[in-house]
Structure formats: C-alpha cells, structure tokens
Amino acid sequence: MAEPKIPSLQHLVRNWHSDPARIQKDLVRLVNNPPTFSYNPLFGAVRDMLVLHVPYDQIVEGIKRGVKRKSAQDILLAVLPLIREYVDGLAPDFVQQVERRYYPVGRGLMVPFEPPLVYGIGGQLYFPWFSFWRRNPLADERLSLFVTLVDELLLEDPDLETARFHILDFSAPKDKAPRELKIISASEIPRVNDERKVEMLETFVDGYLMAKANLAGVPKPGKGKDRGAEPPPPDHPDLFK
C-alpha cells in the first residue's frame, strides 16, 4: 500500500497551503512521481570544508565522481562557490553536529528536523540553516512559521537556546539570474502567534491524512525504465532529501 512520506520540517513549511486539498495533491503526486534529485551532497561539502578543511578542488572532484548526471552536477556546482564564500569567512573555535529531533505537528504526526551543524566563535554559538532552493525559498508567512517552529526546538535544548539562528539563502533573485548568498538573521523575522501556528499545522495534518486516505489500497508505484534519466528542475518540491 502506498503511503505519503512524512516531510522534513522545512519541507512541510514550504509545501504548506491554506487549502488542505492542495497539500493532499502535492503529497499524492510525490508518491506517484518521487523526486530523483537531492541537494544532500552539498551538506557533505559544508562539513568537508568547515570541519575537515578538505581542499575545494577535491570537493569539486568528489561531486563529479559521486553524482553521475551532468545536469545534476551543474546544479550542485553552481552552489558550491557560494558555500566556499561563506566558509572562508569563518574561523570557528569548534564545530559540532546536531542530533535529529522531531516536532509534534499534531494528531500523532512527528516531523523530523535535522540541522547540519552548529559552531562557536568567541563564546557565541551559531546555528546556520542552509536553504539550497534556487527558486521560491521560504518567504512571508511560511518563513515566519519555519522560524517559529525552529525557535521552539532550540529553546527545548539548553545547549542551543542562546544560539544565533541564521538562514543561508542560496536562491537566485530572478529566474535566469545566478544564485546569490543571502544571510538572514532569524531575529529579524516576525513570528506567527500560537493561534495561527496551530491553525497552519492543523491544515497540514488535514492534508496529510487526506493523502493517506487517498492512497490507501493503492499499490506503490515501481520505478519506470526511464526513471532518473534526467533530474527534475532544481526546485522540484523534494520533501525528503
């Protein structure tokens, strides 16, 4: 039986709609046409640069060897210089990984949140979040919801509650423009109030349960012969990678 996968926290927010039927449609579509592209190699590149100090050229070659499709390589390598720009400006005293945690969205639905790392400089802890979408990054109320939920998770951890939370936005300002690195301080983002937060999360759970009911009894689709021949557009709403 096919079943909608549980999205990560940031993908829940990015794919939130005021109409649960639109959420249902997106989740069902992702089961029937799962994404074939992931930005995950870039998270590895961040750690290699910041923690292991791997030479940049070696990271480029690693992506070329590890990612077979040329079109997917091009997407990742367009972001890599901006990551280097960010990392080269840092001199952290330490870098630590952060354990995965879960946000209780409601009605038993637990959504994972897995930050890549935190680092400390001069006694101050920094919590960067990397947003690699080229188009349609989190904005407006979706961005406010995301920051609100992450704030709650940080405040639950005494080791992270004083961290400075920054969003690193690697999107392009226009469709055909090159990507740019924009660093957004979460302190500048307005939060949603509790009533609105609950309303938005309940809408998502409604859409998720509608998708689950829609897919009940439907066989899980197999991989077609041509599946993966080309990656989807860079902003294919990949919920799970």
Rank of each mutant, 00 (worst) to 15 (best):
I189T: 09
L155C: 09
E180W: 03
F170H: 11
I167G: 06
G207N: 00
Y208F: 12
D175W: 11
R196D: 02
V147A: 14
D159W: 04
E161R: 10
D194V: 02
K197F: 04
T162C: 04
V147P: 12
F204C: 00
K176P: 05
A186L: 06
R191H: 12
R191S: 10
L149W: 08
A186C: 06
K176V: 12
D194F: 04
V150D: 10
L149F: 12
E161A: 12
I189P: 04
V205R: 04
S171A: 12
P158D: 13
A172M: 07
A177D: 13
L201Q: 06
D206P: 00
M200V: 10
K182W: 08
R191D: 05
K176C: 07
P178A: 06
A177P: 05
R196V: 06
E152P: 05
R191T: 05
L181K: 08
P158A: 04
M210L: 14
K212H: 02
L168T: 15
F170W: 09
F204H: 05
T162V: 08
P158K: 11
G217Y: 02
P158Y: 11
L155V: 11
N193S: 08
K212L: 03
S185W: 13
V198F: 06
R164I: 14
A172N: 14
S185M: 04
S171E: 13
L149V: 14
D206K: 00
V147F: 12
L154P: 06
P190F: 07
P173Y: 11
E156P: 01
F146N: 10
D140L: 10
E202C: 00
E141F: 10
K174T: 14
G224P: 12
Y208R: 01
E188Q: 11
A177H: 14
A177S: 13
K212P: 01
K182E: 15
L209C: 05
D175R: 12
L149K: 06
A177T: 14
R142V: 11
I183R: 15
L201T: 00
L201W: 01
F204N: 00
P221M: 07
F165M: 15
D157K: 11
K176L: 15
K182Y: 06
I184A: 13
